[in-house]
Nucleic acid binder design. Structure first.
Lengths: 352, 352
DNA sequence: TCTGCTGATTGGAACGATCCAAATGTAACC
DNA sequence: GGTTACATTTGGATCGTTCCAATCAGCAGA
């Protein structure tokens, strides 16, 4: 009795403590916590007072165990340090938080090995669902082996490789890469360019393939032949783009414009051009993809495709929540449109 | 017996399923899972085979409940979309993953209200520890009320306001803001500048106060008087920096250089200067803070202070893990050094 | 045969919540 | 008074794991 009024020693206060503290049963306290209409006003008040007095904190893990439910969603990203994904994550967390879920984070750094490890670790915490932007080269079999078929999964941004395409009932949220790249290419063509390169990205990434397809499509539609040396591969970051810039001008005829894999690459290419004494947006036209924050503020500002990553994050969260709500409805495949944002980096053909 | 060999219907397979499946007790299976040396080689093999066959997944929540332990750490950030924090988070997650912990993410978007909500929600999941980069204006009392005194907490990047400074035994990991700003200022002075402004940030943020103090210190040490109109406040992002640029030149004598609150602000200021027909790094010198990726690749490249956010993330994770290991050791207060990176944006005084 | 000992194994009670069927109290009705 | 109805409350089993003390088999030594 004497030591009961304050926290016992160090143990967290539990339902039983509250129950004992105000002379009701555990069950009643539980009902109060969940706002059940069954409990009497007076008892509710009494219990709530005691909850405050002992400053009780709810143990969601215990509750989830009994209810065989979960209140977390795993978010696994191939590159959290990339502003595009950071903003996406921010949107996901925002939306999940509103719905009372908590985000379990995992970053794989584009490593398939880490992806396996992260998936295996996160699944043990029993998330209600998974949002996965897979590492490059990740395939269906591995992911399925790691997470099983029970947990709903939403694939974002990239398709999975492997020859078991429709084995799982997973939802997919993708960007309209092909259409985006086509728009950019058409835009450059309209400005008078005929020698247009596709710069950056890895051939085996699905998003890069799609963007390249869009570029090809536009070129073909305009009756333009694509030279093999106009296709330059590089890692999707600034540094490698700078390094690969000279390759663009190694053979003749050199391109007068480039559709870049993404903004990071485009910004890198701009720097590379400057180093060659060229002036991007004047001597050479280029476009990006993603519309990251610095695209608008570069010199010159970058023409690019807006994908609204935070919005996509919110959308992804919404999709997975819907899936939890109706686990049996048909799997969804959503391709979100992208929007061409024209800025100064895409100039007309310089009059030589 | 007939339906037992495959997964029953939809229920997850548990310890008991495995135990029943190979004729041992639950306790033994549990020992196998945890790699105890007590179990016989043969039984271990038998059990492991069964684990694979039923592709069992460990229920960490249940285990944690019984063991009264936790395998997650909460990471709460004031702005995940900011590349600095994204990279920090990436480092945290990396290190925690290595140690077998999982990251519970929460982003507050600089809102004290959301910070409260996020803290209250995350604490219910019983994290072993908390890493918190508080929202602007957040104070000790509120945080303490939300998380209690039980869970170890590491404060990153910002101090908490409020007049209960040492009430808690929380650890702190801060950047050496003051020294950094002093280094930048001294550097500009060495280059011949005498009229140096301090540009950006909010007066009431602790990091801004510290950086301003460093600037003042260097100016004073060099015997230079600071004009009031050389202190321009703005939100710590590009957009607002562009808007506030003209204020720098509203009064005479105008500054010839500026120490900026951070890189985002510096990049914005650069743009603002361009719009006035000035050439940053030639007509006007400036420095940033953070050394974000685009600092190196801007035009001109930005002189700034490197803080290695990913490294800081790993360090933060390490600190909180150490704290879990020895809960009673004295609380730590670590100020990590920052490093001046000189690039082209800090030019000598233009000869008029 | 009995005792002691070591190495393996095990049953049952926890952990902190929820679920469910059953019990309680009170008012209303015939 | 007895019966029914309704509004509240409650004990005990349960979720999937771990802990602990107890058990068991096998073998050596007396």
């Amino acid at each position: 009795m004497a030591t009961e009024s304050t926290a016992p020693v160090h143990r967290k206060t539990t339902l039983s403590d509250i129950a004992a503290g105000c002379g009701v049963s555990r069950a009643t306290v539980s009902l109060v916590l969940r706002g059940s209409p069954l409990v009497n006003k007076l008892t509710r008040a009494k219990v709530e007072k005691e909850l405050l007095r002992q400053n009780y904190v709810y143990n969601r893990a215990a509750a989830n165990l009994r209810r065989r439910s979960s209140s977390s969603i795993a978010l696994i990203l191939n590159d959290l340090a990339n502003p595009f994904f950071a903003e996406f994550a921010s949107g996901v967390d925002e939306k999940l938080g509103e719905a009372g879920y908590v985000t379990l984070l995992g970053s794989t750094g584009e490593s398939i090995g880490r992806e396996q490890a992260v998936l295996r670790s996160l699944i043990e915490h029993g998330p209600a669902g998974i949002i996965l932007s897979p590492a490059e080269g990740s395939d269906v079999t591995h992911v399925l082996a790691a997470v099983g078929a029970q947990t709903p999964l939403l694939l974002f941004n990239r398709e999975l490789g492997g020859n078991a395409p429709k084995v799982a009932h997973w939802d997919r949220l993708m960007l309209d890469n092909q259409r985006g790249a086509r728009l950019a290419t058409e835009h450059l063509i309209t400005l008078g360019h005929r020698h247009i390169a596709f710069f950056g990205g890895h051939r085996d990434s699905s998003s890069c393939r799609e963007r390249f397809a869009g570029y090809t499509e536009a070129m073909r539609a305009a009756g333009l032949r694509i030279k093999p040396h106009w296709r330059i591969e590089c890692a999707p970051n600034r540094v490698d783009a700078v390094v690969q810039c000279p390759a663009l001008f190694a053979h003749s005829p050199a391109p007068t414009a480039a559709v870049c894999y993404n903004d990071a690459v485009a910004l890198g290419l701009m720097l590379g051009l400057c180093q060659r004494g060229m002036q991007p947006g004047h001597d050479f036209a280029l476009t990006g993809f993603d519309n990251i924050a610095e695209a608008a503020l570069g010199v010159p500002p970058l023409t690019t495709l807006a994908v609204a990553p935070r919005e996509r994050g919110r959308q992804a969260a919404e999709l997975i929540l819907q899936r939890l709500h109706e686990p049996l409805s048909a799997s969804r495949y959503i391709i979100t449109p992208v929007q061409l944002v024209v800025r100064a980096s895409s100039c007309t053909l310089p009059t030589t």
